[in-house]
Design a protein around this nucleic acid. Structure first.
Lengths: 204, 204
DNA sequence: GTCTATATCGCGATAGAC
DNA sequence: GTCTATCGCGATATAGAC
């Protein structure tokens, strides 16, 4: 055929290569498309803007929506959140420590990418909030649950990336949940032990 | 002087007028500067980009930094946060319900402004986090406290803007704090007929 | 202040897929 | 033939350099 069907993938690969070689900012869209053997116009048909190449394939909001729609009707919201985060941790992050870390590093290095990342986070919050509203949760509670969920996700992600590659992210989720509880209990936040709902002790 | 010293204010006013008349996206920087009687270059000397006009005078991160540096050394982090939010609510929001609401509406209407707003939120989180680190708080706890603080701020702001103009925002802060606690305790405050840990019923 | 790069988008033409 | 992805050209606004 005249065009390969993998234009999108080629663009992504070319972009990441060039970002690694020259940095994000120094790389122009024409450079990316040149390497991918396509035209500039084609790039913008696949990605809304230059930043989106980095975040392509970010289906986490979809995962959240699906999980919320599928969860049993009368489960406690926080349980749904924690279970969901465990699943996401296991299925989408576990074993990709280095890879995720590299992308994260790129994002944090460029203000415009940080900004896009913040927007993705807001979008995710909104998806979760809407998901809980659709489950019949009161709007204000849904907002609070969604914010909590996304904060927990981010704290866990950052902490996991900061730590050793063999640490399970799902465990970090639990640890950060304890930390959030401690903060809201007004306990000296750095106390070593937090009481879990089941009454057992959870050393940090 | 040849030029009025209030260039920045004139630009802001012209921008808001034009955004109201034609929408944000349809308004170009040259249009704004033309109305303000200035050149395009001048605009970018005062604002990093077109979006920043909306967020000009956003010194909340500075307020947060100052408050954290000034607070007594061994206060509980959450107390600092809540006191700080009460102050910000009283000093910077109280009595400006309509005004804040109008800006918020504009921001929410335009994806690129939503994105910038999300970035501001991330910047604020980082300022608070750093402030607590400077106070000697453990880095992970500082991150958790900062996220909690900013979530609380945003939940309170949105809720306050959604409600009647005569409601005190400081009260909404307290209410949202209770909501967050309830979420983390596994009992959303207004969920219907959820059994609380003390065994009593909690109807909406 | 002027000049310019580069991101971004609209439009019409075209080339293969089905 | 119709549909979709790509191309090629052009226009414009933002943003930064000199």
């Amino acid at each position: 055929m005249r065009w390969s069907p993998d234009a999108r993938e080629r663009l992504e690969r070319a972009a990441f290569e060039l970002f690694a070689e020259q940095g994000y900012q120094a790389t122009t869209v024409p450079q990316i498309t040149a390497r991918a053997g396509l035209t500039t116009r084609t790039f913008f048909r696949h990605f809304a803007d230059k930043r989106e190449v980095i975040f392509a394939g970010d289906e986490i909001p979809d995962v959240a929506r699906a999980a919320l729609a599928a969860a049993p009707p009368d489960l406690d919201p926080l349980d749904i959140v924690v279970h969901g985060l465990h699943r996401v941790a296991d299925e989408r992050f576990e074993g990709r420590h280095d890879q995720v870390r590299a992308v994260r590093r790129l994002i944090l290095s460029e203000p415009s990418l940080r900004e896009r990342d913040a927007r993705k986070r807001a979008d995710l919050t909104d998806a979760v909030r809407q998901g809980f509203v659709d489950r019949g949760l009161d709007a204000s509670d849904a907002a609070a649950v969604a914010e909590t969920a996304v904060v927990l996700f981010h704290l866990a992600l950052e902490s996991w990336l900061d730590g050793p590659a063999d640490r399970r992210m799902a465990d970090v989720v639990d640890e950060q949940l304890g930390r959030l509880r401690a903060v809201l209990d007004g306990r000296p936040a750095s106390s070593r032990f937090v009481t879990r709902r089941d009454g057992r002790r959870n050393a940090t």
